[in-house]
Design a protein around this nucleic acid. Structure first.
Lengths: 226, 226
DNA sequence: GTCTATAAAGTGATAGAC
DNA sequence: GTCTATCACTTTATAGAC
């Protein structure tokens, strides 16, 4: 077959492995399944990667980087907006709703990432890639919150890393809960309260601006599964 | 060997399987590993359970029931307390702190439960046990919140199922975040804000009672990993 | 009912031809 | 560099002796 640079081989294999993990889970991501998806021989995988675990490390790093870019892209519309400053709670709610959109549109991807993280949590030798994943998320959450403060002309009343950890906690929890019950309407309601909880940790720079959230006393009953 | 009732065999096998899942993960829970832990032969497992998957179903149901009982027991101290009614935020914070205590004391158990849920999410035919698990959690969260309202002489301003879903989201997120970074001090801070977020959805029955939370402007910096 | 032994089908990794 | 063929091992499940 054609002589392919090892860097390109790695890319092809990582992309194929991501599809296999999403479809069959980590346990189903055998070396044979990956090379079948990538359309190459088993030996080529072991030429590009020393072992299956090394391939999985590369997959985790790649998926994490993709998520980080998605978060970054989600912030661009905010910094470029003109008009009057929106309330912090609305900025956060819009961001969380966009996150939920991604989850609903591609649940296999998020489930795959959770599986990969749990796998790395249990397997010795994956500490480095796991720490990198966590640091990337924390940083993405921090810059999201800092951008949100700029857009809403607010300041954080708690250290940004503290608020960022709450944001990560909320997105992780939203993901787990939605994957478990697939109740998108209920998740939207949870997003509203999550946004209020985060926005309560910030205050407007200009005291005359009155921050307004949604009505707490809404009579929305728990909707059934979609 | 001794002739053992099949019900007892099943109990022994499920208990052994729970230990193996906690130690080696779902992928490491092979039929051989379980029978070695239980001290019986491979054929005895297949006499009690038709397949490995059927055993895993029983494990998920058992662990879920144990968690439900733990949540129930955690509520008993609340309803029996005399003295003046504590503030809702303090009741919830105490409950979340107790949850965090359990997580820190036995992280392998929570990690195992997450792995089992993800496994059930991916494997066809496990929908029933997964739905049961989710319903159990939602019910436990609801009765926890109702008990908290009683103890703090408050009422919920939103439907209890809605608040319960936020509680489940927060505990799931707390678990994932702590498992990822093992930063107990940061998790305690997250608990404070999570409790405030939930307490904001309730109001005291007696208007003269002033609900008091913690100071939001505390200068706690993000602590390093433990 | 309980066991040993084994079947049948995987797995990760590598040797060696080209 | 890339391939086929294969090693060495593990897996679930079952057959058949007792």
């Amino acid at each position: 077959m054609a002589r392919i640079p090892v860097a390109e081989r790695r890319r092809t294999l990582v992309d194929a492995a991501i599809r296999v993990v999403a479809r069959d889970g980590v346990a189903g991501t055998t070396t044979r399944a990956v090379v079948a998806e990538a359309g190459m021989s088993l030996a080529s995988l072991h030429y590009a990667f020393a072992s299956r675990e090394e391939l999985l490390d590369a997959v985790i790093a790649d998926v994490t980087e993709q998520e980080r870019r998605a978060a970054e892209d989600g912030l661009l519309p905010l910094v470029n907006s003109t008009g009057p400053a929106p309330a912090m709670v609305d900025v956060i709610r819009a961001g969380l709703d966009r996150f939920l959109d991604l989850l609903v549109a591609d649940p296999l991807r998020e489930r795959a990432l959770l599986e990969l993280i749990l796998h790395a949590l249990r397997t010795p030798g994956h500490e480095a890639v796991l720490a990198a994943q966590h640091a990337t998320y924390q940083r993405a959450a921090q810059s999201s919150l800092e951008t949100a403060a700029l857009a809403s002309r607010s300041r954080w009343r708690v250290p940004v890393p503290t608020a960022a950890r709450l944001l990560v906690t909320l997105t992780d929890g939203l993901t787990m809960a939605w994957l478990a019950d697939r109740d998108t309407a209920a998740a939207r309601v949870t997003v509203v309260f999550a946004a209020q909880a985060l926005a309560a940790l910030a205050e407007p720079l200009d005291p005359t601006t009155t921050p307004s959230g949604d009505d707490l006393d809404q009579d929305s009953q728990e909707p059934g599964p979609c």
